[in-house]
């Protein structure tokens, strides 16, 4: 059933996925975990977030992605609150991650060390 049998079906699948991603009014968190991110400790942050979000009863999707390329500020992570633009945070340690949960995720209050998108996107 999984196989995509035509380019039109790919489009349909894409629309379904997008809808699924959008309808869940969930907090989405991305931890950048390429080789470089992991070398600077991104896995610790990933595990910390998974554990703490559950403990603190926050319903969020945490996914691991490749690196953004900000080696000078790694580990980095991104938070997208429902209806908001994504925000990337740099130099995240457990302390910072805790602050991000308490301030940004819970109250929408930003914390120092955000990394604005310093590039243009193509889509």
């Amino acid at each position: 059933m999984k196989t995509i049998k035509s380019p039109a079906e790919l489009q349909k699948r894409k629309a379904e996925i997008l809808q699924r991603m959008n309808e869940k009014e969930k907090i989405r968190i991305r931890v950048h975990m390429g080789t470089s991110g992991q070398a600077s400790g991104a896995k610790v942050i990933y595990d910390f977030l998974k554990l703490e979000l559950e403990k603190r009863n926050i319903d969020a999707v945490v996914i691991s992605t490749g690196d953004m390329g900000y080696s000078y500020a790694e580990p980095t992570m991104e938070v997208t609150l429902p209806g908001e633009a994504p925000v990337v945070f740099g130099n995240v340690d457990k302390l910072k991650a805790d602050e991000i949960i308490e301030k940004y995720i819970k109250n929408g209050e930003l914390v120092d060390g955000i990394l604005p998108a310093n590039y243009r996107v193509i889509n």
Partner: peptide, 21 residues
Amino acid sequence: KKQIRIVLRNCGIIDPENIDE
């Protein structure tokens, strides 16, 4: 902005282990 992401368009955005993304 001086940078444009074409090659890196999805790096750090999608979960590389989930084709749906």
